[in-house]
């Protein structure tokens, strides 16, 4: 992997670097921003914010609900044992199990969506990263740029250090 990137101590500078890259004709999707914290209040932190996760949560909840319904009702009918004079399929108590499984489905679906869409767990091999990020620096860079030399000026903002990865 080849890459060129800058490390910035301040998010304002990172935002500027992102803006410069855009100005240099780099597509939004090709700009990598890596940070040790989320920057909700900066534009660069909002890129790619759209996600199907809430819908997946709803779908997961529905799957859980159906599972809960089938688990309770079908097993109760499969071997009808009478207890406490209750109906064989007893809705009131079953609703509790159905509720729990609905919520479990939603949670699990959200987490699966998270893992899939955030590519976790994943390998960092061949991907742009710099351990200095964990010290608080914000990394803005481009992986496999077509013309690294042209991008370096865009990243060279006062207060940032430009690095490049060869091989």
């Amino acid at each position: 992997m080849k890459a060129v990137y800058g490390l910035y101590a301040e998010p304002e500078l990172a935002q500027q670097a992102v803006d410069n890259l855009r100005a240099a004709g780099v597509a939004d999707a090709d700009i990598t921003v890596i940070s040790s914290e989320p920057f909700e209040h900066f534009e660069f932190g909002h890129r790619d914010a759209k996600t199907v996760m809430p819908w997946m949560a709803v779908v997961g909840g529905l799957v859980g609900m159906t599972t809960g319904y089938l688990l309770t009702s079908v097993t109760q009918m499969a071997w009808p044992l009478k207890t406490s004079g209750m109906p064989i399929v007893s809705w009131w108590p079953n609703l509790i199990v159905i509720f729990e499984l609905t919520m479990l489905g939603a949670i699990v679906a959200s987490v699966i969506t998270l893992l899939v869409s955030a590519k976790l767990p994943g390998s960092r091999a061949g991907k742009l990263y710099d351990p200095e990020v964990s010290d608080g620096y914000i990394l803005v860079g481009v992986e496999n740029p077509s013309d690294p030399a042209r991008l370096e000026p865009a990243l060279a903002i006062n207060g940032g250090r430009v690095k490049s990865v060869e091989s």
Binding site: L81, T83, S84, G85, P93
Partner: peptide
């Protein structure tokens, strides 16, 4: 009891009618 309170609470159907 027809509506024995002991039955429904058993999680394994050990108590039933």
């Amino acid at each position: 009891c027809d509506a024995a309170p002991c039955e429904a609470v058993c999680p394994t159907y050990a108590s039933h009618q």
